[in-house]
Write a protein that binds this DNA or RNA. Structure first.
Length: 203
DNA sequence: AGCCAGGACTGAG
DNA sequence: CTCAGTCATGGC
């Protein structure tokens, strides 16, 4: 599998995706947590619920009763966990401040995010890349599945991540676009229900 | 009617 | 480190 070539093919196939679909950096954070094992359409509904209640910033979330948060994110499933995860993450951002965090090193940020209960590698990296503009390559279920489909031996998260990062220039915008393209491709051509028409096999 | 969605945590082997 | 069970609502 040629990682560069695959990118060009996907970009050619779908065009620029302009991810992440959000209006503010904190909306990216919210979405990163709520989209865990959940379709994006449900996440949009939850974010819409939050907006209509005036909950838009990290400080807003911190000031919202847990019960109300549960109510608002219920439509994304796992609502008891997610409401708590959202609250814990909002506290982290409210206490530290966006500007200060942006200046912090990626390694430190990643460790701090992973220390929050409910934030695993993919959620942490999504936040790092799409909310904080740090050059990390996000690995998700589609990435793993596509790589396996193309005959790659299965590896753990960090190894697969290093593989992509090592094959590409360290460019946050490129990483954003590539991950978005992988998700789009995965949704259409490489998921549990459907894994044919694999145009990527030529890579 | 089931199966699945842009995961993470826990406990066991 | 790998693996199953768990969390839960909504779409097809």
């Amino acid at each position: 599998m040629n990682i560069q070539k695959t990118y060009n093919l996907l970009l050619d196939l779908f065009g620029p995706q302009d991810w992440w679909p959000a209006e503010t950096w904190f909306e990216v954070v919210i979405g990163a947590i709520l989209t865990q094992q959940t379709r994006w359409e449900s996440v949009e509904r939850a974010i819409s619920n939050m907006k209509s209640r005036g909950i838009t910033t990290a400080e807003d979330v911190v000031g919202t009763p847990l019960e109300e948060l549960e109510d608002v994110v219920r439509c994304t499933g796992f609502y008891k966990q997610k409401s708590r995860r959202l609250l814990a993450t909002a506290k982290y951002f409210a206490e530290n401040g966006y500007g200060a965090l942006k200046r912090r090193s990626m390694g430190r940020l990643r460790r701090e995010l992973l220390a929050i209960n409910g934030i695993g590698p993919e959620t942490a990296d999504s936040i790092l890349l799409y909310a904080l503009d740090k050059p990390v390559f996000v690995i998700d279920a589609y990435t793993k599945r596509i790589c396996e489909c193309m005959g790659m031996e299965r590896t753990d998260y960090n190894s697969l991540q290093k593989l992509f990062e090592g094959a590409l220039p360290e460019d946050a915008e490129l990483f954003k676009e590539y991950h978005a393209l992988i998700v789009e491709y995965g949704k259409q051509y490489c998921n549990k229900k459907n894994c044919d028409g694999c145009v990527l096999k030529s890579c």
